[in-house]
């Protein structure tokens, strides 16, 4: 195991932001340049926005007791299981305001899964949702958008212009299934080039699930699915942070331990 480097104490110590906050800040910097609005939504959500509108049928196993936290004595209310509820909320709101697509949003936020915790599983964790809807937003655009995001993320050094390293990122899709997208894909990423971080270089890494928004999802939000199409993705921010900084235990994120936080 590597040892903590001996460091002298600075005279006037400033505090540190949480690595997830740093990552969200950075993601927003990259995505807002690509035209994406930072959107948000509630953590306690109704089943319509969390499941039905997303084309997850009533009897889908994901709606079973073991995966979803249900709120006691509040019929049909759950702790959201993904940030995808905001896809529906955002599009509904735009349609209500009379704004037709194009839409581009990212939704960083906390999500919940009712499962036992260990080094790689947490009951509460963070996701980054992305949604782009327009007349001809395609699966090719999903590939291009994610390639650009990861390239900037892994090239950047602290968000400043100084010391940026030139790297390349390749994106690979594998077929998958999600009720809210079709085609659905698993997204793998590979950082290549001399300046790639050594521990990541040339290795395919599974990053997220994504796909083309299912027409039922657009319809359910009131968007004309005959005219518009789009992509959506949802990646785990905890996992991305773990990968980026070599963090070995997801539970550190919620540990509130400064031996962890103050390293960032």
């Amino acid at each position: 195991m590597e040892k903590t480097k001996t460091k002298a104490m600075p005279n006037c110590p400033t505090g540190h932001i949480h690595p997830i906050s740093s990552l969200i800040r950075e993601a927003n910097q990259i995505f807002s340049k690509m035209g994406f609005t930072f959107a948000e939504g509630p953590l306690i959500e109704d089943e319509w926005h969390n499941f039905d509108a997303l084309n997850v049928p009533k009897d889908h196993p994901a709606r079973d007791m073991q995966d979803t936290f249900f709120i006691k004595d509040e019929e049909g209310m759950v702790l959201r299981t993904h940030t995808s509820n905001v896809q529906i909320r955002y599009m509904e709101e735009q349609i209500k305001k009379g704004n037709q697509p194009p839409y581009r949003i990212i939704v960083p936020g906390k999500v919940f899964r009712n499962e036992a915790t260990d080094m790689t599983h947490e009951a509460e964790f963070f996701q980054l949702e992305g949604l782009a809807v327009g007349e001809d937003v395609s699966l090719a655009n999903l590939k291009g958008t994610l390639a650009r995001f990861f390239k900037e993320l892994f090239s950047a050094k602290g968000g400043s212009a100084s010391g940026e390293k030139d790297i390349n990122v390749e994106i690979r899709f594998r077929p998958s299934f999600f009720p809210f997208t079709e085609p659905s894909v698993e997204v793998d990423m590979r950082v290549v080039g001399e300046n790639a971080p050594e521990k990541l270089r040339d290795r395919w890494i599974e990053m997220m699930g994504a796909g083309m928004v299912h027409p039922n999802v657009l319809k359910n939000a009131g968007v004309d699915a005959g005219k518009y199409q789009g992509f959506a993705f949802g990646m785990g921010l905890d996992r991305l942070a773990m990968l980026r900084w070599g963090i070995d235990d997801v539970r550190l994120m919620h540990s509130a331990d400064l031996r962890f936080v103050n390293q960032f």
Binding site: G35, R104, A140, N141, G144
Partner: peptide
């Protein structure tokens, strides 16, 4: 899906809300 090219989105016509 390897036949799907990586194409960046065109510049956004709308406005990025803050």
């Amino acid at each position: 899906y390897d036949k799907v090219p990586a194409v960046e989105l065109p510049p956004f016509e709308g406005e990025v809300e803050i």
